[in-house]
Write a protein that binds this DNA or RNA. Sequence first.
DNA 1: TATAATTCCTCTAGCTACTAGAGCTTCAAG
DNA 2: CTTGAAGCTCTAGTAGCTAGAGGAATTATA
Lengths: 136, 136
Amino acid sequence: MFSIGQLSKRTGVKIPTIRYYEQMGLIDAPERSEGNQRRYTKEGLSRLSFIRHSRDLGFSVEDIRGLLELSQHPEKPCLDAHSIAAQHLQDVQSRIAKLRRLERELKRITKCDAGNVAACAVIETLADHGLCETEH
Amino acid sequence: MFSIGQLSKRTGVKIPTIRYYEQMGLIDAPERSEGNQRRYTKEGLSRLSFIRHSRDLGFSVEDIRGLLELSQHPEKPCLDAHSIAAQHLQDVQSRIAKLRRLERELKRITKCDAGNVAACAVIETLADHGLCETEH
DNA sequence: TATAATTCCTCTAGCTACTAGAGCTTCAAG
DNA sequence: CTTGAAGCTCTAGTAGCTAGAGGAATTATA
């Protein structure tokens, strides 16, 4: 049996976050000690690790809800898991693409070496979208 | 003079968002009509365009506050603008790097072609960080 | 000009995924 | 048995909006 603090240390999930996940229904409410403190089992630990890892990979809480549900049913086909992951991969890729465009634009405007704001490319570009080279 | 709706159409910023920016002090409270409706001038329009464009480039509201302040003082040196933009560029680059690592991991795990959850690489990887190839 | 349709007003609450703090209770080590 | 760390619940705050209620003003049509 682990206290919430031990669980936190083992998974790297902060204590208030663990309570938050419980409130959101991602993890089951664990048993309590006589004095009403949470006591977790190994199952609780591995479930929280799963969540932590999924969050690290950028899955939303809703995605994780689906993935957890699936992981409880090993006999089911795993198409759903794949489509959640594939969708997420797409999201990640489009975010990368968008950030790359920003990066290009920011690199370009920060090259300015004017001395004052009146002639500064950063300020000027922000004021006038027409000066941009790419869409965003 | 523009109504809030016209301003919204010209800048692409939604009406509640314009009011929100006013509340946050990013734009000045404009004059009002006899019936208490907002009436904007061309200055209001260009200030909002500046904000919109900066948001598109991913600057935070706080950053924009600084950039706007600077843009009001054309005679000042523009070092501050550059450091805000350069810092932001760094943020963008580190986000790109992080997303690339995720992308690699997600690509790898979605390659799985098992038929059911018990053998599915997606689920398995989420459950066990040790199966990952890169840190995240 | 009368009425109808559209736009605008303020105010409150909700979204994601947490995080921080107040004020109090329980646990574990010495 | 005491004391300090760790736990409890509850509320509110973070960014950057977005949505809805309920009502007033403006604009377009008949």
